[in-house]
């Protein structure tokens, strides 16, 4: 694309031709993406302003440190880097599809569109796993009534506030009711207890077991963390989903030979612009939610 030869001194604004030298459809796609970037920008900036207004913000390396099939292994940044590379790679296959489209090579466009769709689906699967993991995972945290309990991450709560000291944990355990003690003991690896067996133990035995295991517990984290995380990654995931649908439509239209009839593959370019935008937004989501 880099070899446009435009005569020097071309008067773009003198009328008779478009001053942008870009087709109407592509200009409108660009302007849509520009407005969309302000939507994403506003969400991310609201997140940034809120984060700056808090004394303590959950550390992403503690929130996102798991990997599928790796159990409870502490692997910060691992899963999100997989997601990032999936999206970068699907961006490359998309731009290769556009390239094949320039050459009017239908088979090439079909191949790379299919790879791009697969990349998008892989990314969505990763996101589904991550959301499920956060919404169902349980960490030990100080509850509102001053007892210890387990907590998942949602838009209402998260267990990633400042860490409790050992004394604070011991004190909270003294006032924690039996069923919560059983639940906490059940999360410990080394007790290996079945819930029914644990329930038979006395409160003091459970407390001894829990405190000797050297557990870590946090205060509840800032409530808005979940809203921003699920809201922004959800909005981005919805863009990925619609991008996959658009790419699927483009793939079918390519197969049906619509673009060959039309004589150009510009629709692939427009779908490509949208897809690259999804990758572009992820670059910033990755930075602000996972890296810093």
């Amino acid at each position: 694309m880099a070899t446009t030869t435009i005569p020097a001194g071309t008067k773009w604004w003198s009328g008779g031709k478009s001053p942008f030298n870009v087709s109407y459809g592509k200009v409108m796609m660009w302007y849509f993406l520009m407005s969309d970037s302000f939507t994403f920008g506003s969400l991310l900036i609201a997140y940034g302003a809120t984060r700056f207004s808090e004394n303590f913000w959950p550390d992403p390396n503690h929130v996102f440190n798991t990997f599928p099939f790796a159990g409870e292994a502490n692997l910060p940044l691992a899963f999100v880097s997989l997601m990032t590379f999936i999206l970068i790679f699907s961006s490359v296959t998309m731009v290769l599809a556009v390239h094949e489209g320039h050459k009017m090579n239908r088979k090439g466009v079909e191949k790379y569109m299919l790879l791009t769709i697969l990349g998008g689906l892989a990314f969505l699967s990763c996101q589904a796993w991550e959301w499920t993991h956060l919404l169902t995972g349980h960490h030990i945290a100080l509850l509102k009534d001053g007892t210890l309990g387990t907590m998942h991450t949602s838009i209402m709560q998260n267990p990633f506030g400042p860490a409790l000291s050992h004394e604070e944990i011991v004190n909270a355990l003294q006032v924690t009711p039996h069923d919560q003690l059983v639940t906490i003991a059940g999360t410990l690896e080394h007790t290996g207890g079945v819930a029914a067996d644990l329930a038979k133990l006395s409160d003091q035995d459970l407390i001894n077991q829990i405190s000797s295991a050297g557990i870590h517990a946090n205060q509840p984290g800032v409530v808005s963390f979940g809203g921003f995380f699920f809201g922004i990654t959800g909005f981005h995931g919805f863009h990925v989903f619609s991008g996959v649908v658009i790419n699927l439509v483009m793939y079918i239209k390519t197969r049906l030979g619509h673009f060959d009839e039309r004589g150009h593959y510009e629709m692939i370019e427009k779908a490509g612009l949208y897809w690259h935008f999804v990758d572009l937004v992820w670059v910033f989501v990755f930075l602000f939610f996972y890296l810093v």
């Binding site: 070899t3 005569p7 071309t10 478009s18 970068i88 731009v95 390239h99 004589g263 150009h264 510009e266």
Partner: peptide, 26 residues
């Protein structure tokens, strides 16, 4: 055939021959 894309495009660019730039960016 390129001119059927759009009347808004006055000067068409020739499509690049290879994908070197794409992979370099990757």
């Amino acid at each position: 055939s390129q001119h059927t894309i759009s009347p808004e495009i006055t000067y068409h660019s020739a499509p690049s021959e290879n994908t070197k730039r794409i992979w370099k960016t990757f």
